[in-house]
Simulated assay, not measured.
Amino acid sequence: MAALEKRFKPEQIVNLLRGIEVMMANGKTLMEACKQVGISDKSYYRWRKIYGGLKVDQARKFKEIEAENARLKKLIAELSLREAMLKEVVKGNY
């Protein structure tokens, strides 16, 4: 049975990271703080690597740029494939 995967928006992640840091400053361990907000320590470290030091609006913009980058990469791949197919047609090797 597949585990349920909870998706967090970038602004939620930044707020969770800040909350965990506050809990740790108040004496909780990382494991306790992560458990209280409902994430694993692995998620914390991964998110901190990606979103650490970002503000909420910066995190949102970061995700938008990542999505745009993925869209452009897909477009480039499609255009490159189309170009290769057209070169083959011109050569007559179809």
Rank of each mutant, 00 (worst) to 15 (best):
L16T: 05
I39S: 01
L16K: 10
L4M: 09
P10L: 04
K55G: 08
E64P: 02
E68N: 11
F62P: 00
R60L: 11
W47A: 01
K49T: 05
L17E: 02
K28S: 12
A70M: 15
Y51I: 09
S80N: 15
L81N: 11
K6F: 08
V22Q: 10
L79K: 13
A59E: 01
G27T: 08
E83G: 04
L72N: 05
K61Q: 09
G27K: 11
C34V: 01
K35R: 09
W47C: 01
A2L: 13
A67K: 12
I50F: 04
L4V: 11
L17I: 10
E11T: 05
R71T: 15
I76M: 14
D57W: 07
I50Y: 02
A2S: 14
P10Y: 01
R60Y: 04
R71E: 15
R60S: 07
A84P: 00
R82V: 09
A70P: 01
G53Y: 03
L79F: 09
C34M: 03
T29C: 03
M1V: 12
R46K: 06
Q36L: 12
K74H: 12
E83I: 15
I13Q: 01
K55P: 02
L75F: 09
K87S: 06
G53I: 03
R7S: 07
E32N: 06
W47R: 03
L72K: 10
E68R: 14
G19K: 12
S43C: 09
A77L: 12
L30F: 04
G52E: 05
R82Q: 15
Y45H: 09
R71P: 01
M24C: 11
K9F: 02
I65Q: 13
T29V: 04
R82S: 15
A33P: 00
K28R: 12
I76Y: 10
M1P: 05
K91S: 08
K49E: 07
R46L: 06
R18P: 01
V56L: 10
E78T: 13
M23Y: 10
W47E: 05
A67Y: 11
R82N: 13
Q12G: 00
M31P: 03
G53Q: 03
G38K: 08
K42V: 08
E66M: 12
L54G: 01
G19P: 07
R82I: 13
Y45R: 09
N69G: 04
